[in-house]
């Protein structure tokens, strides 16, 4: 396990600031900007003396003092979290702790909830997600999402995966076919469905449907993939397949996954954030959070004392 960390300046002492430049890397309190456009892979910065930090990577999403209100109820309280590139970040916590609400802020899916009010900031790279000038449609193409319950459209397998590319205006049949095949291969479903792409997606099993939904999300070529308890409705075998898939996908995508299953978080994620009653209690490298949590509440939760 190679622990890696994004050192976040204390949110109480530092003003919110958007990320600037093409790539930004936090090393301790310094900010290093990388101008090299070919820079895509996370650099490994060797800092053996820093506890829990042996590798640094680019921050893709950063929130600062993010709060969400549903009417009078505050569902999220001042969350400041950074999501590193090409890593799996897990959000854990008991039901109703706000982890799904947080996830839905990252691609503005909360916008559709009546009476919702959002305070604080979310940045995707240097783009303010909640800026009035932000194109939500473009944002959601960059930040894909997989839901708790698989939700294939009542259309054919092909049309499900081709839905996103078609929205982007791709009409060429062979190009669409290429994207569909590519996406289904990446979601490890291709071999099971390649003979019956024109069958209804609703004929697939639950686990296959969820992998289809992942393929559908990948087909828009997102940079970030948000997963909201993607395996919670599946049997153990299908869950294992999804987890393996997540592990493979992290090479290409930045993944944020909500799970109430701590073993799952431990298995698939590089970093974990623990949410409780609308607050983020702590976050850190997964191994560190599960072995030597800093907070008592985290320890109580991961040792099964509540939740």
């Amino acid at each position: 396990m190679s622990a890696k960390t994004i050192d976040i300046p204390d949110s109480t002492s530092v003003k919110p600031e958007p990320l600037t430049g093409d790539q930004v890397m936090d090393v301790g309190d310094q900010t290093i900007e990388i101008d090299d456009p070919t820079f895509t892979q996370a650099p490994v910065v060797d800092r053996p003396n820093t506890v829990g930090a042996s590798e640094n990577t680019v921050t893709r999403i950063r929130t600062r003092d993010l709060s969400v209100f549903y009417g009078e109820v505050q569902a999220l309280k001042n969350i400041s979290l950074s999501v590193p590139q090409h890593r799996v970040t897990a959000l854990i916590g008991p039901s109703g702790c706000g982890k799904s609400t947080f996830l839905r802020c990252l691609n503005r899916m909360n916008d559709m909830v009546d009476g919702v009010r959002i305070a604080g900031n979310v940045w995707l790279d240097d783009q303010d997600v909640y800026d009035t000038g932000t194109d939500v449609v473009e944002l959601r193409k960059r930040v894909g999402m997989v839901f708790q319950k698989s939700n294939p459209f009542p259309k054919s397998i092909f049309d499900n995966v081709a839905y996103g590319p078609r929205l982007s205006g791709i009409r060429n049949r062979s190009e669409l076919h290429q994207i569909v095949e590519h996406s289904l291969k990446r979601s490890a479903l291709w071999n099971e469905v390649k003979e019956r792409l024109s069958d209804s997606a609703l004929q697939l099993s639950g686990g296959q449907q969820q992998r289809l939904c992942i393929a559908r999300a990948l087909a828009t070529d997102p940079e970030i993939l948000l997963m909201d308890e993607p395996a919670s409705a599946l049997d153990p075998a299908s869950t294992a397949r999804i987890e393996n898939l997540i592990f493979e996908l992290r090479d290409r995508y930045t993944i944020v996954i909500v799970t109430h299953n701590m073993q799952q978080a431990a298995r698939v994620s590089d970093r974990t954030a623990f949410f409780y009653e609308g607050r983020m209690i702590e976050d850190g490298p997964t191994k560190q959070l599960f072995t030597t949590p800093a907070e008592k509440q985290t320890e109580d939760y991961i040792t099964g004392r509540f939740g």
Binding site: N107, M109, M112, V137, E138, L139, R140, K141, G144, M145, F147, N151, P152, F153, Y163, G164, L167, S168, C213, R216, A217, T220
Partner: peptide, 8 residues
């Protein structure tokens, strides 16, 4: 929601 999440 599935469609919105794809940028519809």
């Amino acid at each position: 929601q599935g469609a919105y999440a794809l940028g519809a």
